[in-house]
Design a protein around this nucleic acid. Structure first.
Length: 118
RNA sequence: GGAGUCGGCCGAGCAGUCGCUAUCGCGUUUACUCGAAUUAUCCAUUAGUGGACAUUCGGGGGCGCGGUGGAGGAAAGUCCGGGCUCCACAGGGCAGAGUGCCAGGUAACGCCUGGGAGGCGCGAGCCUACGGAAAGUGCCGCAGAAAAUAUACCGCCUAAGCAGUUCGCUGCCGGUAAGGGUGAAAUGGUGCGGUAAGAGCGCACCGCGCGGCUGGCAACAGGCGUGGCAGGGUAAACCCCACUCGGAGCAAGACCAAAUAGGAACCUAUUGGCGCGGCCCGCGUUGGGUUCGGGUAGGUCGCUCGAGGUGCAUGGCGACAUGUAUCCCAGAUGAAUGACUGUUCUCGACAGAACCCGGCUUACAGGCCGGCUCCUUUU
């Protein structure tokens, strides 16, 4: 079983990389409360970036909770992806979804994305 | 036991597995990087050395394993006050903003403590923007006669003066503000005297103003004398008085610094390249190297040991101060502090550090401890 670590090499770190994914998003998975964009990279593994605006999710406690769920589910699914850069965007109302429901729908979304990018 | 009031504290616990981040230790990585030493070999040499490679050691970085730490009482709102940093600054004034009973605490405050005054509560206690209305200006809806120069709606009176008279009184001229009514507020209140009726007109007490005295650092309180009484409210209306205040903020600010473009200095080429041209001459244009400064991406620092926490002692009614012992308690940066499983209970609220402190304000499931007050019951 491969390790499910999630250190800085698995994250998007700079403005330029974010902009590249926004410009050349070749895959997308949408839900009522969130949107996932992705494009291929050369690193051989998947990398995740999170965009959770204060405008859409007002309280910082809720923003932190969404980030943690997103990172945790990504961590468990990361080995099903090819080398892609992924951006997760939160939409308005995501803070109203219960944590367990959000976690399961997001897991399904990761499976969907993995099938699309194979 | 019930009701209330004040102050302090807590903000689910335990176990296992998988993660993130910081730090410490050990190991590992020389095709990650820097520095030092060594001698063998090779290259260059202006004969001083310089460079390459190898070995050893040390520092940083990466990776692995293990240990340890890892959100709050409000981390929040950003409403005040300071530290820190950069900029500005001879001194003084104006403008602007803020504060506003007194004393103390503090780095400072609009905060805190103690005291005073006024108001609320049976009480413990609580509340108060609480300087000046006799510097000037403005405003005061509705109601009411009248809202500030005072005035007279309903009333009360008929002593004096005039007129009439049926000799009972009536009218005029007047007096008055006690009573009624309006209002948040109407020229001080109660009582007695006084009077035609009344009125600080006179007196007593209270209130108010002024001047000593006593107590208190002071705010203020008490008491004495004195004046018949000045004079509505509003200063979170302008204003006056006293005191305080330079500006911007960690995206502050400091340092390192790739690529690309441009700049400066020096060296070098001018027998070079490109254009005009058939070619030469000629003319125009241009290069290469080294160094330097500015500076972008990016990175490092600032960054957490501090007006610090806890215990004890001393001083103080207290806020707090001083001394001493002891502890190290997040430091991220696309931004960590979490997830899953099991289990227990009272079934878990408001809510997430971003340079750091001191306050205030606002949000909050539930729980614990202590002081005091009132009511009730029992012995």
């Amino acid at each position: 079983m491969p390790r499910e670590a999630f250190d800085k090499s698995k994250r998007l770190l700079t403005q330029q990389v974010f902009q590249k994914v926004f410009d050349k998003a070749s895959y997308r998975v949408a839900d009522r409360h969130f949107l996932i964009l992705a494009c291929p990279n050369l690193s051989g593994h998947a990398r995740l970036g999170l965009v959770i605006g204060k405008k859409n999710i007002r309280l910082s406690v809720h923003r932190n909770r969404i980030k943690r769920v997103a990172r945790e589910t990504f961590r468990h699914h990361q080995h099903s992806f090819a080398g892609i850069d992924i951006i997760f965007l939160a939409r308005r109302g995501l803070d109203k979804v219960p944590k367990s429901a959000f976690s399961s729908t997001l897991s399904q979304a990761w499976v969907q994305l993995a099938l699309n990018t194979k």
